[in-house]
């Protein structure tokens, strides 16, 4: 893959308008024990900063991937983006409307209709007591899109075919389907309210490889056909590489690197991104040894001072222990690392 090829691909990309705008997003969880326990055990309050000042934006029709390991805050961001969890600070705007801002019930409904989510576990995301048809019809009913029961049933059948299932499958219960088929049902439900922004929270990590490919291809196909915009949450870099237009790498609640996908995979900048890429198993068997990475992710309740990554960083500097690195522009990437501070 030549660098020229990359540049051309970037240039030819049509300039699209920004659909999702996330600014200064922050979420703190209060993990303190009840008041009485704190008094008796003489413990202070305990806070966990799951998301710490995250900014990014997603353009219409693109896929923005958030990558991170456990404790990185990626799922918390997903929940805030769809309106399931209020942020402690910062804002998320979708098509100009603040997800968490005060608005009329009508505007609220209009906004919710445009945001949907696909969950990780297809075995938990479908109500086991409901028929598949009712599950998919629920958003249509809730948003009052189609009132006639017959038309609604027809629409459900249409959605089922859209995700590659038989329209007659609506009569069945979720337990009659395999994991991959259930994820298709979940996708059909997400599409039922005709959204333009879908948050995919690890949509394939519970699936087998051969099924994972089906679901990833389906998501991509739907994006092209319906012009969807995705926020794609994953810990699997190889998967992200196949779906993302832009990638943000999270470490303990902070966005350490953000870049167009091609650039990030061709030339990772942040030491943590490099480390993650090296940790991907070598399926091609080129004989490269997986780089053994020192240490584990620290407890997110008491993250290291300065750059959170400094205790594991192979190229740390004295200032890394004390100062939180500001974002630096490196080519098309934004990197939060002191290494690039002196260069700029």
């Amino acid at each position: 893959m030549s660098m020229q090829g990359l540049a051309v691909a970037n240039e030819t990309g049509v300039e699209r308008k920004t659909l999702v705008e996330v600014e200064g997003l922050r979420r703190v969880f209060d993990l303190s024990k009840p008041w009485l326990n704190r008094m008796i055990e003489r413990e202070g309050r305990v806070f966990l900063t799951a998301v710490d000042g995250v900014d990014f934006s997603i353009r219409q029709g693109e896929t923005y991937a958030l990558v991170g390991e456990s404790g990185s805050g990626k799922s918390t961001i997903a929940k805030m983006a769809v309106g399931l969890l209020p942020p402690s600070a910062g804002s998320i705007a979708i098509d100009g409307a603040d997800v968490w801002g005060k608005k009329s019930p009508e505007a609220e409904r209009r906004m919710r209709r445009k945001i949907q989510m696909i969950f990780q576990d297809p075995f938990a995301s479908l109500n086991p007591r409901w028929r598949v048809g009712s599950i998919i019809a629920e958003p249509i009913k809730a948003f009052g899109l189609i009132d006639d029961p017959l038309d609604r049933a027809a629409r459900v059948g249409e959605l089922l075919s859209l995700v590659g299932l038989d329209p007659r499958d609506g009569q069945k219960f979720p337990h009659e389907f395999s994991g991959g088929q259930r994820q298709r049902i979940a996708i059909a439900r997400a599409l039922a309210s005709e959204p333009n922004f879908i948050v995919c929270d690890e949509p394939t990590s519970a699936l087998d490889v051969s099924v994972q490919a089906q679901v990833l291809n389906l998501l991509r196909d739907l994006q092209e056909r319906l012009g969807l915009t995705y926020l794609f949450i994953s810990h699997n870099l190889a998967v992200v590489r196949h779906v993302a237009t832009r990638v943000g790498v999270l470490y303990l609640g902070r966005l350490v690197e953000e870049a167009p996908a091609r650039e990030l995979f061709a030339a990772p900048q942040h030491p943590y991104t490099k480390m993650l890429l090296e940790a991907v198993p070598d399926i091609e068997m080129e004989g490269k040894d997986r780089q053994s990475i020192a240490g584990e992710i620290p407890n997110p309740i008491t993250p290291p001072a300065g750059c959170h990554f400094h205790p594991r960083c192979p190229v740390r500097r004295p200032e890394c222990d004390v100062e939180t690195p500001p974002p630096h522009r490196v080519g098309d990437a934004t990197v939060r690392c002191h290494l690039f501070g002196s260069a700029s």
Binding site: S125, A142, A186
Partner: peptide, 13 residues
């Protein structure tokens, strides 16, 4: 906390 309940909350029920 199961995801089907989250999905129901998502459509504003």
């Amino acid at each position: 906390n199961k995801e089907y309940v989250l999905a129901a909350r998502l459509i504003g029920l």
